[in-house]
């Protein structure tokens, strides 16, 4: 990357990414806007500020930072950010979830979409994949960092905890795992469906260094904390970042409810949503 965007510029990019998300989901009347909107700042901060990645895209990913999305259903935000950071043409966003598209409902490698290294959608698998990639970086004497994002509902999957135990035991300290802690899952609030109780204490008990971001939709706070997470790598412990976000963030009628987990806006709702989001980079 040449010059890193300022915080203000990152916020402007976020507004455009949110427009992309609601337009993509509206166009096919399917997809997951809630979690995508909630993680917009995270993806923008990652791809426009933090990640040291190479282009053109190379599956092997040697000597560059890697990112894995474990909760694959929030594909709209990833696709938008990949396109906006130049992995593929933004026009391709219009093919999301359509027949013969590379932008599958959940991220996949089968169609060769640049930026994606493993399929995800069936939950609980991404952390294991990220740890494998991180261990190979160590074997290859590659100093770069591996990032992975998981959902909070996803913490209910047993494989997450197999991976958690493995990472600490093997001192995999070149990985930063973030949990999107929005408190919502398809059937309702996590506290009603299956409570995580003290998530921070759980990860600490599993041997991880845990940092928290109180508001993951506040770009200043998020960039500061991701930078801090990076500074904690290489010290013998894997890093876990619990990032509290609001599902549906940035659009008043979608924010803070599980109702918009997997529902597309209608024409009128789209217009209302777009009215709240400045077009900063030009719609696709």
């Amino acid at each position: 990357m040449d010059q890193k965007p300022t915080i203000n510029e990152l916020k402007k990019i976020s507004s455009q990414v949110r427009r992309d998300i609601v337009r993509m989901v509206h166009a096919v009347q399917s997809g997951h806007p809630g979690g995508s909107l909630g993680c917009t700042e995270f993806f923008v901060a990652l791809y426009f500020h933090l990640l040291d990645y190479k282009k053109p895209f190379n599956m092997d990913g040697q000597n560059e930072d890697l990112f894995f999305l474990s909760n694959g259903h929030i594909s709209p935000v990833w696709y938008s950010v990949l396109a906006r950071s130049g992995f593929f043409d933004v026009k391709e966003l219009s093919t999301f979830r359509k027949l013969n598209s590379r932008l599958q409902g959940h991220p996949a490698t089968e169609e060769g979409l640049e930026g994606i290294r493993v399929a995800s959608g069936s939950l609980g698998q991404g952390l294991s994949v990220a740890l494998g990639a991180a261990q190979v970086k160590k074997l290859n004497k590659d100093p770069k960092t591996v990032y992975v994002l998981m959902g909070d509902g996803e913490q209910q999957e047993g494989q997450v905890w197999e991976a958690a135990m493995y990472a600490a035991h093997n001192k995999i300290d070149n990985v930063i795992a973030t949990i999107d802690y929005n408190g919502q899952q398809i059937d309702g609030p996590l506290t009603e469906v299956l409570d995580l109780i003290d998530l921070k204490a759980k990860w600490e008990a599993f041997g991880w260094e845990v940092i928290t971001t109180a508001n993951g939709n506040d770009m200043d706070q998020l960039v500061a904390n991701l930078t801090k997470a990076k500074s904690l790598t290489g010290k013998g412990k894997p890093i876990l970042h619990i990032m509290t976000t609001a599902m549906g963030s940035g659009i008043d009628f979608m924010e803070g409810t599980h109702e918009w987990h997997g529902i597309a806006p209608n024409d009128e709702q789209l217009a209302r949503a777009l009215g709240q989001l400045e077009e900063t980079l030009g719609d696709y």
Binding site: G61, V129, G132, V136, A163
Partner: peptide, 13 residues
């Protein structure tokens, strides 16, 4: 389960 995921990740690199 973790072993299979780790193996998938290890192919990257």
């Amino acid at each position: 389960a973790n072993m299979i995921g780790l193996a998938a990740g290890m192919t990257i690199g």
